[in-house]
Design a protein around this nucleic acid. Structure first.
Lengths: 252, 252
DNA sequence: GAAATTGTTTTTCAGAGCAGAACGACGGCC
DNA sequence: GGCCGTCGTTCTGCTCTGAAAAACAATTTC
């Protein structure tokens, strides 16, 4: 059925863990057992295991996800060359534009926001670091697609499709192909409410060495503020020069 | 002798996952099997399970930790009230001081750095978000200890001890108790190379509602730069006023 | 092109994971 | 303050799974 086999106990542990992670209050064994469909006894054993591993904490007879989970993500991120090189530049991009600035990488044909820096403008997208977002709906995602080989893009589109996230999402392959060509020519990509209504983004890819995954940076914000020359000249210019700075650091 | 029972398969899965997370290159089944002491066959099954869950990726016959792990940490963090309230203030603290600014919470008697913002000065501590750090060796940690009840502090010291991290670490209970009193009086704590040689920190606790864990913010940097009035007046003042801003947001 | 190495699958079986029941510790209610 | 309901924890079997070993397949190496 699943092709190859999996470890049931591990899946159960993660179901419990993910349930805790999604909750903003401590949960009891009985409630968790009902949620994941296991007996109270086993759930308790799993919780005990996760607690011993440091990923779950017990606060007066109830369990909650531990902040130790942050270390896992931070660790995997710190081993990503492009992140260590780009972080301060993305921070700076957020500082000079005042807008949310992001670093994305491609993984398994989807985009993952690896880092997000907030500018002085108090706004935040509805996705967070680690969220998987289809490549064709964001500016950095399209920039990464444009930087990939033609056959790789075809594979990704075959596997992932072009689902619509909003009314503006590009769902036609030929339209997308045309846009990728434009992106390659201009070295910049835009996302006009294709991922989320009311949100506009700008992005550009970061050329990487072999072996490394595709990567891109971006700036995004409410469409009410990101308009006209501010968007198409000021911000675009800052994004491009930031990408150049990152590349300089990367090839050192 | 683990007292209660644990799920072996889960522990094995996490041993494999943690090994991958700690590596900055893709690892093969054979190497992983040797590292964790399991047969190639099971390791393969575990990897397949973790891949299906989205925490591991396969890049040409080798496995590596997925960026999807970031989502777990980000999720648990976003459910932490003090983080959502404090983030932009900590960002701002880093902006105005130019130094690394952090948010810590207490969990199971240790401090965990929940958020770190970098200022314009290019420096970073050797710990990252998610790292567990003994409370008695950092400025925010001591601030949290000072904000806890006397009996709670005794419990923590009994359980965790006062291990020396550097030559400057406070290892004597009475000395620490005296310092905590001073911290309570002044509303500010300092860490002078007690956690890491050459690193100085300032911190202050954030008063929280019931139920919530202790929390504190801090600023840290190289001892060569953080000295004299800059440290004891400028930065200290910014830390205290930032904490006040956070409390205002929290009690809304 | 052969040989060695590595990822994947298969086989086999001890014991681990799971359900269900029993136990015990809180917390509320009268 | 004592009884009762509820929830976390432990216990008891039973089943089926997770794990070792070996066979197999797909690579890489020489």
């Amino acid at each position: 059925m699943t092709g190859t086999t999996t470890v049931d106990a591990t899946m159960n542990s993660f179901r419990i863990l993910e349930r805790l992670v999604a909750s903003d209050e401590a949960l009891g064994v009985t409630e968790l057992a009902a949620d994941v469909g296991l007996s109270k006894g086993v759930v308790h054993t799993h919780l005990n295991t996760l607690a011993e591993l440091g990923y779950v904490t017990k606060r007066d007879r109830k369990y909650l996800a531990s902040m130790g989970l942050l270390a896992l993500g931070e660790d995997v991120r710190s081993h990503l060359g492009v992140f260590t090189a780009a972080r301060r530049h993305v921070d700076n991009l957020a500082r000079v534009t005042g807008e949310v600035s992001t670093l994305f990488v491609e993984e398994d044909g989807v985009g993952i926001c690896v880092y997000m820096a907030h500018g002085s403008n108090d706004w935040t997208p509805e996705y967070a670091c680690g969220t998987r977002i289809p490549l064709h709906v964001t500016a950095p995602g399209k920039a990464m697609l444009a930087s990939l080989g033609r056959e790789r893009v075809a594979d990704i589109l075959d596997e992932r499709g072009l689902d619509a996230q909003t009314a503006e999402t590009i769902t036609d392959r030929n339209v997308l192909r045309g846009e990728l060509r434009t992106i390659r020519e201009n070295g910049i990509s835009f996302c006009r409410e294709e991922q989320s209504a009311g949100v506009i983004g700008v992005g550009t890819s970061i050329a990487l060495t072999e072996r490394a995954p595709a990567a891109a940076i971006g700036v995004c914000g409410p469409s009410s503020r990101l308009t006209g020359r501010y968007l198409e000249e000021d911000i675009t210019g800052q994004v491009i020069s930031t990408a150049k700075s990152i590349q300089v650091d990367l090839t050192r």
